[in-house]
Amino acid sequence: MTTRKITSLADLADVQADARKAIDLRSGTKDLRITVHMGTCGIAAGARDVLTALMAELGRAGTTNVSLQQTGCAGLCDQEPMLTLTDPGGRSFRYGRLTKHKVGEIVRDHVLRGQPVNEYLIKA
């Protein structure tokens, strides 16, 4: 881990802001919750790469209102790898057959702009 020398109140505020941003990504009290399904089926289909891509995209976007979690199989194994995005209103959006590229689009359009990417949603 890197350390930073704090010589002023401004430095301290910067450190606090960075830490808050990092913690926000995982605390469960934020506006959006993204859950990656990591059952055996999901892992075999590429869920770890989806999770890695999500961490990178969310970190790059600098968003502070998203919590990132993982869970097991949702029973839709043929749709793996998949994630569930739950918005502040409690509505769930389930995305399936994901790739790193699709994850980038979902973060850009749904997480940052509030526009679901209908093309990648699992149809009921």
Binding site: L25, R26, V36, R48, L51, T52, M55, L68, Q69, Q70
Partner: peptide, 15 residues
């Protein structure tokens, strides 16, 4: 494979 990235992902999502 990517053991380091795998463990980092698990640690990050299960604080």
């Amino acid at each position: 494979g990517d053991l380091a990235g795998t463990l980092a992902g698990v640690v990050c999502t299960n604080p």
